[in-house]
Structures are given as structure tokens and as C-alpha cells.
Nucleic acid binder design. Structure first.
Lengths: 245, 245
DNA sequence: CGTCTAATTGAACGAGATCAAGACAAGTGG
DNA sequence: CCACTTGTCTTGATCTCGTTCAATTAGACG
């Protein structure tokens, strides 16, 4: 993966897939970034309950929102990709109800809350776009409720692959019909509400049915349409359309 | 239940539990309401995918966000109570990825999007509070991911009761240790990701353990602390604290 | 090589689903 | 006022998907 130089490039790419972003707005976003840092895989960046004074933009790598519960159980609520504002909601909530951790080695950009406040006071349209991006996370999370609440194990894994593929494609991080997903089957279990053992079996089934393979941190999709059907995947909830917002 | 006269009263009550709302802001909210309507139980108010030009404030009764999926399965993602802005997110998203339906007979207030847009341009602080309220929904939905993803059936039902109790208490809709929940066990199944048959068994268990009863559309909590423990309920995700936002 | 973590496969178990039947309550129309 | 319908609740029996427990293999890294 090429080292990312511009911290807001992919965020802009995502926003511009949903609405027009003007030059002044782009500048305001760029000015909002305070600094850049590298964080190793496994590190927890934001801990539930802690008062926050800045938000975090993913520049490279993957993060997750997750909650720990009794007896070592963990539930991943959303996987964050480059260009995502992982804890933009912390700007308004002031603390989070979950943790944010690095699934892989990551590069992050820090955005102080007072600069975000300035944007809400001076750039109403850009503010609505930031609002939008927090609501897009909500939509992704709502879809996960459906996944874990009603879908069978195979569909859950397939659905996650479909979603990640579409989201990564938008920011140019897919290659042919594959994408890097350097996480373990245990993580995959936490993200789908399954045990790693059962995830393993579902992966085997996806392989046997020649829908997709997951090996060496790489997801390769062999039959997009078949996978989509197995997952009951409909990308409408990702709001991939440009509209005045 | 006393007929509610003021459409924004409970919304203000909720917002003021989280931050200060000034007189000008209160006026702006009040002016945003266009009209009031009654809707019978079962009716779908907002259908997934339809372009929206106004949002809906619940004045009386309960609504739900839900998705239908193959073979008549349905997943309720959140139950909305009086004072909730059910589809405020539609203001920025422009369409929804789920339906909104009346769980009970409801009274709703309609708020045109252009009036909300005006608020984002003239009232940055109030805008952040509206943003907050959409993020509170997200937090509730994240907690549901944990429920359906990792909690056992009994805990799911117990957790729903705990959450509804706390949210209803805030707006004065509980009485002693009980509250009205005029929905069926089938609805309860859709809200917890269980079948109505299993919900029934879990209700029996809650009764037998003398934690809570659900009968005739009324939830009565007999042992709050026991119920809380069975549910692994921690109200932190409801952000019941006043802070400048 | 030896150590540690992740992946893989098998066997048994169990929570919740499915199927089925009956009880009960509230209408509804004769 | 009663027969009939309809929907919800309740309980039992059986089945199944995913878990749990356990053992083996494969990779990565010193």
C-alpha cells in the first residue's frame, strides 16, 4: 500500500461521492488537522467514557469500534477504513460509549474539537456533511443489527465482505476483485457475532462454493453476484449518491 | 395517558437533560413544527428509499425503525418514544435505509427540512444539539448490536425493558416501577432478534425469577437491580449528563 | 529449531428455532 | 345473546445451527 501523504484526501473523496465540497470547505477541513501519528496494531486509541477534546481521522489502516463484555466477549460494531472519521461523534457526545482500537498498524490525523466547533459556526453546509458522515456510520451499524439479529452465519461473513469491498472500492483500495483485510479470524468472529471456529467453517464454505476466499489477510471475491445473494447485500444503506445536503 | 398539547415539550426535556437550551433556541424549535397528525397503529410512516422533505417528531405513542428481509423476517432497530425525532437523520440523508412504522396509535408533528436547514445556518449550538440527538440514536443502536450479537435471549429482553424504563422515566412516562408498552410479543421478538415463542418463554422466566412482568401491554419491574444484572445493563450509553455541546 | 499464535477439523452439546396444538380474549355479524 | 372469526399467548416436542471442548496442523519469528 502506497504511503498516504494527504490526511484529508480520502475523506474528501468520500464526501464528494455524496455532495459537492467547495474550495473553502476543503481548506477548512485541511486546516482542522492538527497532527499525524502512527499507531501499532492492537493499541486502543479511545477508551469508553473518557472525556474527549479531539477527534481522529484514519489516514491508513483499519480501526474498529468495539465493546467488551463479560467473560472476554467482544463485539465489533464497525470497521473503520482510511478516510473515516472514527470518532467524529465524540465531538458532540464528548465521550464515547465504546472503545476504538487499531485492527492493523494505522496512521491517524488528529482534529481538535475547537476547530470542529468553528466549522459548525462558520460553515453550515460543511457541518451538514460532517453530520452526514456520522449518520453514514449509523446506517452501517443499523445494517449490522440486521446481520447479527437475523442473518445466518454464512450470510453474515459474506455481508461483511461485500460491505468492505464496496467501501474500499470507493477509495481505490481494491485491486481486481480483492482487497487487503489483515485481521484474524477471531476479529472476524467479533465483527460478525460468531466464534472464530464457526467463522473458519463459513470461510471454508465460501471457498467450497467458489464465492470468495480469505487467506493471508487478503479477501478475493470470485463470484460477486453469488456472494451478494448469499449475503442478501444491498448497498443502498451506503448512500452512494450525490445530492445537495 | 394525558393528551399531549405541546409538540416540542418532551424533546426539550430530553435536550435539557444533556445541555442548556436557550429561549431563542426553544423558539426556533417551536417555529420549526409545521403541523400535527394522528396515525393509527400498524401504519408505515416512512418507507425506505423514498426522498424526504420533512422530518417527524413523536408527540405521543411509540414508533419503530425496522427493516424487512426475506421470508417475512423483520428486525426492529430502535423503538422511538414521545419526544424523539424519529427521522431527523433523514434531513441529511435525504432518504432512509429502513422503514418507520407506528407500533401503537401515535400523534406526530411534522418539521419541514427547509426549516431545519435554517436552524443549521442560524443556530450552530442548537444544530449541534440536533446532531447530538441523532447520535444518541446511534448509541442506542450500537447497544442493540451488542444485545443481538452477544447477549443470551433472557438478557436481550431484560435489556430492552431496562432501556425503555430509563428512557421513559426521563420524560415522566413511568409510574412506580412500571410503564406502558402496548405491543405484542411478536414485536418484542422483532426487537430482540428472537422468535415470539422464545420471547414468551423468556417472559415466563422473568416472571418466575420475580424480576419483571409483561402483561396487558404493561411492564412492571419487580427487582430493578436483579433485572439490571440479568441484562448487563449500564445506562452510560444514554448520555444522561449535562455538558456544553 | 522451538515457541507462540492462528487456522483447521472433529465430536458432543445446547440454546433457540421450528412445528404443532390448545387456550384465551376481543370483536363482528347473525 | 351467541356462534364464529381472528389474533395473541402459552406450552410441548423435536430439530438444527452455532457453540464448546479438544486435538492437530500451519506459519511467523526469535
Amino acid at each position: 500500500m502506497a504511503a498516504e501523504q494527504d490526511p484529508v484526501r480520502l475523506l474528501l473523496l468520500k464526501l464528494r461521492a455524496r455532495d459537492v465540497v467547495g474550495a473553502a470547505e476543503e481548506r477548512a477541513l485541511r486546516d482542522a488537522v492538527a497532527d499525524i501519528a502512527d499507531v501499532p496494531a492492537g493499541r486502543t486509541l479511545v477508551r469508553s467514557g473518557v472525556t474527549l477534546s479531539h477527534s481522529t481521522l484514519v489516514v491508513e489502516g483499519m480501526l474498529s469500534r468495539y465493546k467488551d463484555l463479560s467473560e472476554g466477549q467482544r463485539q465489533i460494531q464497525e470497521i473503520h477504513l482510511p478516510g473515516d472519521f472514527t470518532d467524529l461523534h465524540g465531538f458532540v457526545l464528548k465521550r464515547l460509549d465504546h472503545n476504538i482500537g487499531a485492527l492493523t498498524d494505522v496512521k491517524i490525523a488528529t482534529v481538535p474539537h475547537d476547530r470542529l466547533k468553528l466549522i459548525t459556526e462558520e460553515q453550515p453546509h460543511l457541518s451538514r456533511l460532517l453530520w452526514f458522515s456520522t449518520l453514514l456510520d449509523s446506517a452501517i451499524q443499523r445494517e449490522k443489527i440486521v446481520s447479527v439479529g437475523r442473518r445466518a452465519a454464512l450470510a453474515r461473513v459474506a455481508h461483511l465482505f461485500c460491505e468492505l469491498f464496496v467501501r474500499l472500492e470507493l477509495i481505490g483500495l481494491t485491486e481486481d476483485q480483492s482487497f487487503a483485510l489483515p485481521i484474524t479470524q477471531l476479529d472476524l468472529g467479533d465483527a460478525t457475532g460468531l466464534t472464530s471456529v464457526h467463522v473458519n467453517r463459513m470461510l471454508k464454505q465460501l471457498r467450497d462454493r467458489e464465492l470468495a476466499t480469505f487467506r493471508g489477510g487478503l479477501v478475493r471475491i470470485h463470484d460477486w453476484d453469488g456472494l451478494r445473494q448469499a449475503a442478501e447485500f444491498d448497498p443502498a444503506y451506503l448512500y452512494l449518491e450525490r445530492r445537495p445536503r
